[in-house]
Simulated scan of single mutants.
Amino acid sequence: MTHLPCRHLAQRMASTAIGWLHRHREHGAFPPGTSAELADPNGVYKPLGESALAACLLLRTPASTPADRRLADSLLSFAWEQLGNGALLYERQLRYPAMTDPLEVYAHFARAGYRHDALHELEQYLTGLASHQGSEHLPNRRLAVANAAHVAGLPVHAHWPTLTAATWLGHTPEPWTIDWMTGYAVTHTVFHITDWGAEPHNLRPALSDYLATWLPVWTDIWAEIHEWDLVAELLIAGLCLPDPVGDTGAWQRLAEVQRPDGLMPPDSRPIPDDPDEAFRTGHHTTVVAAIAATLALAHHQQQPVAS
């Protein structure tokens, strides 16, 4: 089985996705003259953080084209400015010290060289507290926070094997018991253990072998019912393994449902005509498509595959 999409398909998917995210960035901006409610966990912060993630991973990948890198750099600058050059993240974290999303969002910018000194100092203090280490998160979320601290250059007060063992994936369970939410938990467990594929050997061999066997099966199941968002996330997880797994058929189906403008629909439901609704519907999956294609391009550069 061929594990990677052809280079041309991956390049087209990455370029059109980052192009769409850049062209529609204003739909994810704060309303003029206002800022998002600091206690809202899923308002403007979430799309800005997701766009920043796609952009910083693209910039991490030398195989990305100069044009795509310019768009990614511009998208990061836009998101950072929307966050008050980090000031809004600092205020949010200061008011709500138990929240972890300010650190997680900040990590995307820190990866690309951005820094907010007061926020960095605050995160360094908070991550050392017993309260932070004992926070009531789902197991894969605890990995997310640990990896964010790692990426941001903060001390990591976590034992990775213990965190991994607590996850569903860490138990290498019966694969047929997986459901939609667990599928997402599995993918994010892989993302954070490997830092989005940068450190694939952080996955212990038993987990890599388990995933190599079952990721293609799960991908096929969710492709059959047109759950494109989860399909794309499963493909990303396959690219994070020491020996990547996947299926060019699944990549081809994903490419076929991506709109010419770059938007990737999350499922088979129609995209709303209203631009704001279309952004809310398609933004996350377009981010995921950009990441998937970017990681595929990185593997092509490391070990070229005939297309």
Rank of each mutant, 00 (worst) to 15 (best):
T2G: 04
L4M: 03
L4F: 02
C6M: 05
A10S: 09
R12T: 12
M13W: 07
S15R: 05
T16W: 00
H24S: 03
H24C: 00
R25N: 01
A29K: 02
P32D: 01
G33T: 06
A36L: 13
A36S: 11
E37G: 12
L38K: 11
A39H: 13
S51V: 05
A52N: 08
L57Q: 15
L57M: 09
L58K: 06
L59V: 06
P62Y: 06
L71W: 01
L75W: 03
W80N: 09
G84K: 07
G84N: 05
Y90P: 06
E91V: 04
R92L: 05
Y96H: 14
P97S: 09
A98L: 10
E104H: 11
Y106P: 07
A107Y: 07
A107I: 10
A112G: 09
G113H: 05
R115W: 07
R115K: 14
H116A: 14
A118T: 10
H120E: 12
E123V: 08
T127L: 12
A130R: 13
S131A: 15
Q133I: 04
S135Y: 12
A144I: 08
A144H: 14
A144Q: 15
G153F: 05
A158Q: 07
H159T: 06
P161L: 03
T177I: 12
T177E: 14
V186Y: 09
H188Q: 11
V190N: 11
F191G: 08
T194S: 06
D195R: 07
D195P: 04
P200L: 04
P200H: 02
L203R: 04
R204G: 01
P205H: 09
A206W: 05
A206T: 11
T213K: 14
T219L: 13
I221Y: 11
W222M: 08
I225R: 14
L230C: 01
L234M: 13
G238P: 08
G238V: 08
P242D: 12
P242L: 06
V245D: 12
L254D: 03
R259C: 00
R259S: 02
P260C: 04
D261H: 12
P266A: 01
R269C: 08
P272F: 03
P272T: 01
G282N: 01
G282A: 03
H284A: 04
T286G: 01
V288E: 00
A293Y: 03
T294E: 05
H299T: 09
Q301E: 15
Q302A: 15
A306Q: 12
